[in-house]
Design a protein around this nucleic acid. Structure first.
Lengths: 186, 186
DNA sequence: GATGATCCCGACCGATCGGTCAGGATTCAA
DNA sequence: TTGAATCCTGACCGATCGGTCGGGATCATC
């Protein structure tokens, strides 16, 4: 166990962190590799030495949140439908608040996400989440869930204007209004 | 009254129409002036002769929907609060369906909308709409209304995958779930 | 001290972008 | 017929983009 981080890991981490900060504040497409390199204190060529391409940087930045999403899905898929929906909602809101800066990035990338193979897995998992949020096979409910996700992505856009608690309350309220069907008696 | 449209108007209209189609299908930033010129059958210089800049093209393309939004606001602002909210919801959904292609464009432009003076008026009117949709001065309700607009913008993204009627039902359902408070007895 | 792998960078590439400009057509009034 | 206004364009500009490449440091190993 080395006392000092090896140069490789040190530089990689620095690039990742600076890229995350820039993506969160300006968005993905408005951030150039040169911006990232300057912020990380290295050259653009170094960024491309550690990550093969710009989308690869994005994928690395998004990875922790993707892992968290996978855990969410694993936990939720073990539950019966009704409980699954409720857990999906609350965990999703938690996740959005935790990664609020990156959530904003996602919306920026959405228009070109189909042509970004590095994010194909993330898209797939996003669709699985949508189904759990819908809590039903009804197409309208699935569309409503998609609507909810879009609304949430938009609300994570402006960091700093809202506290985590405020964002949490907003998303929780909105998702419950949209998705929790009032209990009916048969 | 000329039988044939003057060349000026003819070219302008052609550029506007082709730009609208391209913006709707690929988004604003992914459409270059050259793309518009090629589609309109003229040179890029001609596009910039009729419209001073790329944002000016966007503003011209968005103008009809902006006019419709202004009419909506005028009608709605003449009503008492409760009725205003209900009318704002239904008219907004109508408007979104009618201009669904352009609505998608709006979301593409959102990240840079602050630095686009050509759209400043549209932003202002969007904020006024948000207040009417909220139907209350409560900050949470205003945020929910913003959430609703974001959700709607996202759902207009994929043209052709949904009929107008389906999109209308989806947006109407979602907005009512989000915004219409259940009537309470005092 | 030599060697090879790892890390890093300056210089460069081709492409694309929005935008400018001088001037060639065309039209139309005088 | 002439001259001005209008419409349009090819050539060009500076900037920026993501990405490549050859080679200079650095460092562990032998």
């Amino acid at each position: 166990m080395p006392v000092t981080t090896p140069a490789r890991e040190r530089t990689r981490r620095e690039i990742e962190q600076q890229a995350m900060a820039l993506f969160a504040s300006r968005g993905y497409s408005a951030t150039s590799l040169q911006d990232i390199a300057t912020a990380a204190g290295c050259s653009k060529a170094t960024v491309l030495y550690h990550f093969n391409s710009k989308p690869a940087v994005l994928a690395a930045v998004l990875e922790p949140s993707h892992v968290a999403l996978k855990e969410l899905l694993a936990d939720v898929s073990a539950l019966p439908a009704a409980a699954a929906q409720e857990l999906a909602i609350s965990r999703f809101v938690d996740l959005a608040v935790q990664f609020r800066g990156l959530v904003h990035v996602l919306q920026d990338v959405l228009p070109t996400i189909e042509e970004t193979p590095e994010l194909a897995d993330l898209v797939q998992d996003g669709l699985r989440l949508t189904e759990f949020l819908a809590g039903s096979d009804d197409q309208l409910e699935i569309d409503i869930a998609s609507f909810a996700i879009n609304g949430l992505l938009g609300e994570c856009r402006h960091p700093g204007e809202r506290t985590d608690a405020e964002l949490h309350q907003l998303c929780d309220t909105a998702l419950h209004r949209l998705l929790r069907k009032p209990t009916r008696r048969p």
